[in-house]
Design a protein around this nucleic acid. Structure first.
Lengths: 256, 256
DNA sequence: CTCCTGGCTTGACTCAGGTCAATGTGGCAC
DNA sequence: GTGCCACATTGACCTGAGTCAAGCCAGGAG
């Protein structure tokens, strides 16, 4: 896995300069990377004040990985936590016999490491070229100890994840294949909306196999149902995604 | 729903007496209910020091409800959070057409209200006569604001829940009916172990229908598989539960 | 005691989605 | 360009779990 690293604070720190206090002034020119961050408002960092952001920025390393790169592996000690800034990531668990369950897809703004546990509960690898802001789990944990409001935000994000996981339990336990696919497309549309604004075009950076492993279906079933929804004019299949034609129909199918 | 209420601090508070400071001395006689609490070590409260425990005790109301009583309902505003001290609770989501997904069962020591959200994400009702320690969500939230270590504990419990939910996603998405039943029995055995110690006897306070709705199966399938496991001498079906005979075999089936 | 009733079990049959196999397709290395 | 490979689609057939229906059993009401 080839990773491009750049120590965020290097430019200033390597020259031995103190961090410019100007950066804290809202009208000043941006001097820390977070100021330019396109997903800040979506992410954990939104809970931070300007001086805290500078502190966090000093702890961060930005990383860039290519498609298929592994970020971390299930059951391995958790060394880093990540804030995805661009790209997309597949999160999955493997059974000993090779069966796979995708537990989620991370998009820009998503945080990996909510649980702060010793070992990774799942594996993560990039679906497309991906950028992330990476923190040592220790540094991060210490930082958290001094920032109860950040912990509160972390907890609220984890609660939201839990709620999504429970919705997914309903999908996997009690919905038909067609409903699963519709719910997947509507759910993904809603998530892209936070990143890109609302579009009927839904990018699908993952393969049909990944979708199947997320929905508890086979590739063939996913493919057949996408074809059927397209034949019935609910969607159009386009390169690397779908275009939603009949959102109301899909929402009815997906209805929680 | 008939509920028995008892304001925990009533005995002392109603007499206008200050809380006896003696209660804080580890060797003194117990004077707050928490001291007698049999699930304290399992629960959130374990994160609290003696004086905090007294504070929490003052906020608490103990409630007792009969089987089938509703604790709270999905989508209703969340007024209370609960610490289950005895009994068992079914947590579930309903689809508009009546399909049901059980998202979990709460046992003594479990906390309901981890997410601190405005609305309940699921409904909860008692499977058996149940006791709980109940707190107003507001009081609780304020209390939490002043106790970062409690928040940390809450977060770690929520993370654990999330991890269980992800394991359940694997079960629902990628496992056969037999594996699901085995995983359910082993999982429940492990949870009872925390409450009662390790026994091959696993109480099943829920119906086969509940188990089916938890595992994404029908009653009939659950029943058939329990019968089959019994015929094959992996378990014995006893009133209100099962006795595990071949734990190794079940664990092999359930293996994550 | 008898009669309900709700939960559990069992059997016969069905079908949604899985399996297997063939073919299509687009991007990339050379 | 050609060949390769991973992904996607489609068809024919199969099967694990669902559906429907009947009967059993224990506990509570009267």
């Amino acid at each position: 896995m080839e990773v491009t690293l750049r120590k965020k604070a290097d430019s200033a720190a390597s020259m031995g300069l103190p961090q410019p206090v100007l950066a804290l002034c809202p009208n000043s020119k941006a001097t820390i990377n977070c100021d330019k961050c396109r997903v800040r408002a979506l992410s954990l960092c939104d809970a931070l004040g300007p001086s805290e952001l500078v502190e966090l920025d000093r702890m961060a390393t930005t990383i860039s990985v290519g498609a298929k790169a592994t970020l971390f592996e299930q059951d391995q000690p958790c060394e880093w936590v990540y804030n995805i800034t661009a790209g997309s990531v597949r999160l999955y668990k493997l059974l000993p016999d090779g069966r796979r369950q995708v537990v989620g897809f991370a998009l820009p703004g998503d945080f990996l490491g909510l649980s702060m546990s010793e070992k990774n509960a799942f594996s993560a690898d990039a679906l497309t070229p991906t950028n992330a802001c990476r923190f040592s789990r220790n540094d991060y944990s210490n930082f958290l100890d001094e920032k109860p409001h950040l912990l509160r935000r972390l907890h609220s994000m984890a609660s939201h994840e839990l709620s999504l996981a429970q919705d997914q339990m309903v999908i996997l336990g009690r919905r038909t294949a067609e409903e699963r696919v519709a719910a997947f497309l509507i759910g993904l549309r809603n998530r892209w909306t936070r990143v890109n604004g609302n579009h009927v075009h839904v990018p699908l950076p993952m393969t049909r196999q990944d979708i199947g492993d997320f929905l508890g279906l086979t590739v063939e079933t996913v493919s057949r149902l996408m074809t059927r929804l397209a034949r019935e004019k609910a969607i159009v299949i386009v390169p690397d995604g779908v275009r939603l034609l009949d959102v109301a129909r899909l929402e009815r199918l997906a209805e929680i």
